[in-house]
C-alpha cells in the first residue's frame, strides 16, 4: 500500500545497513510511511513490517515507542511545542498556553477544521532558542514569542 516513491526512499535507507539487517531501516521506513499518509494507520505499519521482513507487532512496538510517530490521525499541521524545564524558563509553557488559546484547543487536540493538531513535546535539543516549535516533525521554529506565533499561524492558515 506504500507508493513506489516511498518504497524507493525506503530502499535507500535499507542500503545503509548490512544486508541481513533490513530491520534497521524500520524507523526511517515508518517515518517515510507517515510522511506519505499523514499518520501511521496499522495497514501502513504492516506494510513496512512485511517489506522489511519483520513481525508486524515488532514494527508496532517501534511505532508506539517513539514519540514522533502518530498512531492516530492528526491535522494537516502537527504543531509540537517544547515545554521542558530549560524551555519553560524561557517561555515554552507560555507559548503552549498561547497556542491553545489562539487555536481554541488543548494539547493532543485538533482544530475543528482539521488543520492543526497541538502537541506538547519533550526536549528537542534546541533549548537556547526557546520557545521552540516543530511543524510536522520537520520544520523547527525558534524564538517563538507571541508575535512569531501569530505570524506562523497566519502562514499555516
Amino acid at each position: 500500500m506504500l507508493t513506489s516513491e516511498s518504497l524507493k526512499r525506503i530502499d535507500r535507507e535499507i542500503a545503509k545497513y548490512p544486508a541481513d539487517q533490513k530491520q534497521s531501516a524500520v524507523m526511517a521506513a515508518l517515518a517515510i510511511a507517515q510522511e506519505e499518509q499523514g499518520w501511521l494507520p496499522s495497514e501502513a505499519i504492516e506494510s513496512v513490517a512485511n517489506y522489511l521482513g519483520m513481525a508486524p507487532i515488532a514494527a508496532y512496538e517501534v511505532a508506539s515507542f517513539y514519540n514522533m510517530y502518530d498512531l492516530r490521525p492528526v491535522g494537516k499541521y502537527k504543531v509540537s511545542v517544547c515545554t521542558n524545564l530549560p524551555c519553560m524558563l524561557s517561555g515554552g509553557v507560555d507559548a503552549g498556553e498561547y497556542l491553545k488559546q489562539k487555536l481554541g484547543i488543548g494539547y493532543n487536540e485538533t482544530t475543528p477544521d482539521g488543520l492543526i493538531t497541538l502537541k506538547e513535546s519533550e526536549c528537542m535539543g534546541a533549548c537556547g532558542d526557546a520557545p521552540v516549535v516543530i511543524i510536522n516533525n520537520r520544520r523547527m521554529c525558534s524564538w517563538m514569542q507571541p508575535e512569531q506565533i501569530d505570524k506562523l499561524l497566519a502562514e499555516l492558515k
Partner: peptide
C-alpha cells in the same frame, strides 16, 4: 551513515 531517531530520550 546517518540514522535518525524519532523522539525517545
Amino acid at each position: 551513515f546517518a540514522h535518525h531517531g524519532y523522539g525517545a530520550y
